[in-house]
Nucleic acid binder design. Sequence first.
DNA 1: CGCTTGAATAAGTCATACCTTTGCGCGAAG
DNA 2: CTTCGCGCAAAGGTATGACTTATTCAAGCG
Lengths: 231, 231
Amino acid sequence: MEIQGLPGRLLADLGPAIAGGEIPEGSVLRTEELEERFRVSRTVVREAVRILESMRMVAPKRRVGITVRPKSEWDVFDPLVIRWRLAGADRAAQLRSLGSLRVAVEPAAAALAAVHASDDDRRELSALAVELTVTARAADLETFLAHDIAFHAIVLRASGNEMFAHLKDTVGAVLTGRTEHHLMPHQPRPYAVQLHREVAEAICAGDAELAERSMRTIVAGALDELNATLD
Amino acid sequence: MEIQGLPGRLLADLGPAIAGGEIPEGSVLRTEELEERFRVSRTVVREAVRILESMRMVAPKRRVGITVRPKSEWDVFDPLVIRWRLAGADRAAQLRSLGSLRVAVEPAAAALAAVHASDDDRRELSALAVELTVTARAADLETFLAHDIAFHAIVLRASGNEMFAHLKDTVGAVLTGRTEHHLMPHQPRPYAVQLHREVAEAICAGDAELAERSMRTIVAGALDELNATLD
DNA sequence: CGCTTGAATAAGTCATACCTTTGCGCGAAG
DNA sequence: CTTCGCGCAAAGGTATGACTTATTCAAGCG
């Protein structure tokens, strides 16, 4: 899935460094410098830089060098950019942005899922809702997280919208990050778990209205908690 | 802004060809073949392919070649992928997806904008709402389109969410495509124009509730019309 | 003081050689 | 006849040197 080979390694070094602000906006890199710093050939440097260019994070210019573009121009929807920002100094801002995005998208996805979900999807959602209840009560955060991610992924996919479906990994990253950085209670809130059951039931029953409302309560609550924690 | 140079040209040929299905999923390309077909060197081919790889549209494998990955794995949020799909055979599906996305995001953005918009933003929105009314009455579709794009762009930016803001170009592409392919009435619907004024007023007044509701009516209406036209 | 021109610089492109991985066929063993 | 494994060949991956092109900056000229 990742970019392989030496360009991939270069990218894995440069990307986070830029996203994390260690290489600040406006910095100018040179191909030759990167060759030496990472002990790789021009070919490799150029390919890595091309990728960063396609993410609009850098802009190569003749006679000048490779300039780091302002953050506001980056492809903020690129999964790599999101991951790098989540890993670095920008984590808080990135989580806030993603939180708002979830509030916008997930309720809509739930409503669509209530209409379009397959029978298998509905079954899986019900099962996961039960699992969430159990693992929450047992305070088994790790398993809870896995099921939570799966739950939201299925809702997104079942919406039938490819773009929503592709937010699966991003939402997963948010949930994972939240757990890893202890931005959530040690035991999942019973109310939140209850809401997941409601979403599952609503989708099973084909009740778009209710699915949307319950999902909105979930993600809005998550955003509130996030903002409260980050302040 | 675009990828420059020969790799950019290659990309501008290959990308649309893949996105448009002319090079179907599962096809296997070889570097040498591309070199000959486009009369460029290995370097150039590799850089273009690397970019396609970072969009998850192709996967190079040793001893096999460069295979075109299934559409479901592409980076559907990449601006280039969106543009290519809008230009090709996938236009209908892409427009539907983007329509749903707009329904999810733009109302949320409007609500946030009502809280976060700067005074300049509010002024501009008011002015644009007036312009929309005038150009709609005059059936000046070209100017209307430009102002419509600007209007939605400002709302997205004023939301204060960087991810929402970055959907500006995408929304612009949708609106442009809709006009160009005559998927909208010859003269903008007065009701839609009226709703834009409502959004502007609500944002100026800081009424998040109303801004969100009005915007939702706009984008939901656009989606309905789109679906009606495409069937 | 401004305009032109030229030289220096760094990216862009090409051709080539060589390395590394891996699919597949062939042959030997069971 | 089947199966296992070994080795070859094919394709991408990396390195390098030569050359091209665009662009900045400054020196020199009007």
